[in-house]
Amino acid sequence: MYHVLVGVDEDEERARACAQEVLNLPGDTDEKTVTLLHSFTDNPGGASATQIASVRRASDFLDEHGIDYEVLESSGDPAESILDAADELNADLVVVGGRKRSPAGKAIFGSVTQSVILSSSRPVMVTGVVTRA
């Protein structure tokens, strides 16, 4: 059985792509459990993770395919939140969505995906956005 931690940011297409890759993992759907994690860096309205459109998009996809999941939320640095949750949950795999960014953009703004890849002691899968025909 896989326990997969999926880091979900604000982008709905990346969230769906991450959920799709969980479905594509070897094994039946009942052999996979997923934790969707959204880390708030700013939440003045007090929203919960289940109110975030990208989290709902990933949740809906997992529901449609019969994959058990739970939704967690945290606050603070997203990379640290993902790494901490992966350790606490003893996740078998961490899935994060990648996006294109210029080298200058990475230097100025950092990259959650890059930080997770470089700091994780667990396997990390980086997904791209699925292009629909």
Results as ranks from 00 to 15, higher is better:
M1P: 15
M1K: 14
H3D: 10
V6G: 02
G7E: 07
V8F: 02
E12H: 04
E12K: 07
E12T: 11
E13L: 08
R14Q: 14
A15F: 05
A15P: 11
R16V: 15
A17G: 09
C18K: 04
C18E: 14
C18M: 13
E21L: 14
V22P: 03
L23C: 08
L23I: 13
D28E: 15
T29K: 12
T29P: 02
E31R: 15
T33D: 13
T33V: 11
T33F: 04
L37F: 03
H38T: 00
S39Y: 00
F40T: 05
F40K: 08
F40E: 07
P44F: 06
P44M: 06
A47E: 13
A47W: 06
S48P: 01
I52D: 01
I52R: 03
I52A: 03
A53R: 13
V55K: 00
R56V: 09
R57P: 00
F61V: 06
G66M: 03
E70S: 13
V71L: 06
L72Y: 11
E73D: 11
P78F: 06
P78N: 03
E80I: 04
S81N: 09
S81Y: 02
L83V: 08
L83I: 10
L83A: 09
D87I: 11
D87G: 11
L89T: 07
N90S: 13
N90C: 10
A91E: 05
D92R: 04
V95L: 11
S102I: 01
A104K: 02
G105N: 04
A107E: 09
V112N: 01
V112F: 00
T113E: 05
S115E: 08
V116E: 02
R122S: 10
P123K: 08
P123S: 14
M125W: 01
T127L: 06
G128D: 12
R132W: 11
R132I: 08
R132Y: 12
